Simulated assay, not measured.
Amino acid sequence: MNFSPFAKYFRFTKQQRTGIFSLFIIIMILQTIYFFADFSLPEKSFQEKEQWLSLQTEIDSMKLTKLTEKPKVYSFNPNFITDYKGYKLGMSVQEIDRLLAFRKENKYVSSAKEFQEVTKISDSLLSVMAPLFKFPDWTQNKKDFKTERKEFVRKENFKKENFKKEKIIVLDINQATQEDLMKVYGIGEALSSRILKQKEILGCFVSMEQMNDVWGLSPEVVNELNTHFKAVIPPTLKKIPINDASLKELSQFSYFRYALAKQIVTYRSMNGNISNIEDLSKIKGFPVDKAKIISLYLEF
C-alpha cells in the first residue's frame, strides 16, 4: 500500500517537532503525578460535630441500659386492679370479671386467699401475684372500720344535737371577735379571719347579706351566721360623699373599683350632682343587685 500521498501531512519543522516532543513530556509527567499523588482533602475537625458524636454515644448507651435493665414491679391493692394490669399479670377475662362483680357489691378482699376464692385463679398464678399484693389497714379489719365509722357518725350527730339545744344569743357582727365567729358550726380560723378582713376593708358590715360575698362560706354556714349574728350599723361609720369624693376615693370603695369610679366622675361632670341611688343605677357597670347595700355606705 502506498502511503506517499499522506507523507506530506507528517512533515514537521524543527520547531514543531520540539513542541510535539515537549507536549508529550508534559503529558507523561501529568499522568505520573495523577497515579502516584494523593489528592484527597484532609478531614477537618469541627467542634460541633464532635459534640454531636459524643451526645449520640451517650444516647446509645442510655438506650442499651434501658433495654437491659429489668422493669420495676410495684405493690398494689388487688381490690382496684385494672383490666390491663390483670391481663399483664396473666389473669383471664373471666377471672377479672369475677373480681369486678364482687367490687360492684361494695365488697373488698382482704387477703390473697380471699382474692383466689373470688377470682378462682390457679395456685401457680396466685404464687406469682401474692407477693405484689398490698392491703390497706382498713381492709385488714373491716369490722373494726365499720364500728369506728358508726361511732364517729354518732358523736358528730350528738355534737350537732347539743349545739342546736343551746340557747342562741344574737350578736352584732361588727362587734364579733374571731373567737365568737369560730363558735359557729362550720367556721374555723381561716374563714373567721376572712370575715374580719372583709369587715376591715368595708369599715363595717351594713347587712348580713354581705356574708354571701365572703369567699369560702357555703350557704349552710351563711344561714348559721344569720342565726347567730345581725348587722348593726355603727354611728361612727364614715360615709362616702358621692358628689364630692375624688376619683381615687371612689375607686378605693370595694363595690366600685376604678372603671366604675371613673364613670361616676364623668356622670357628675355631665349631669350635675347625684341625688339618690336611682341616679347611680343609671350608670353603666353599676352593680344594681347591690344597690341597697351600697346606698348605706354613701352620702348624697
Rank of each mutant, 00 (worst) to 15 (best):
T147N: 13
Q140D: 08
A190C: 01
V153F: 11
N141W: 01
F152K: 14
K165S: 09
F158Q: 14
I201P: 00
L191G: 02
W138I: 11
E156F: 03
S193N: 09
V184Y: 08
K199C: 01
K146Y: 11
N141I: 03
K159P: 00
G188Y: 10
K146C: 00
M182I: 10
E179F: 02
D172A: 04
D180C: 04
L171G: 01
K159S: 03
L171P: 00
N162H: 08
M182G: 05
A190K: 15
Q198N: 13
A190H: 09
N141L: 02
A190G: 09
K160D: 10
E148H: 13
K150V: 11
E151H: 06
D144L: 15
E151G: 02
K160M: 08
P136K: 04
E151P: 00
K165M: 05
K197Y: 07
N141F: 03
I187H: 02
N157I: 04
F135R: 12
E148I: 06
I201Y: 01
K197S: 11
R154W: 00
E200D: 15
I168L: 12
Q198S: 15
Q175N: 15
N157K: 15
K167G: 04
K160A: 12
F163L: 07
P136R: 05
E166S: 10
Q175E: 15
E189C: 00
K167V: 12
R194Q: 13
E151R: 10
E166H: 07
L196M: 10
K146W: 03
F135P: 08
F152C: 02
D180M: 03
F163G: 01
I187V: 13
W138D: 08
K159G: 02
R194W: 00
I173P: 01
E161L: 14
I169T: 14
K183A: 09
L171E: 10
Y185V: 09
S192C: 08
D137F: 09
A190Y: 11
D172W: 03
E200R: 12
I201N: 02
L196D: 06
E200C: 01
V170W: 01
E148C: 01
S192R: 12
L191C: 00
L191V: 00
Y185L: 09
F152T: 12
F163C: 00
L196V: 04
V153K: 14
R154T: 06
L181N: 07
R149D: 08
K150C: 03
P136E: 05
E151K: 10
N162F: 04
E148P: 01
V153Q: 14
M182W: 04
F158H: 07
Q140F: 01
K150N: 14
A176F: 03
M182D: 02
T147S: 10
F163N: 06
F135W: 06
D144V: 08
S192Q: 08
E148F: 11
I187R: 02
K199L: 06
D172C: 02
A176I: 06
T147V: 10
F135Y: 15
L181S: 09
E200Q: 15
G188T: 06
S193T: 05
K159M: 06
T139Q: 13
I195P: 05
K199T: 01
K143F: 11
L191W: 03
Q178E: 13
T147F: 08
M182C: 08
Q175Y: 05
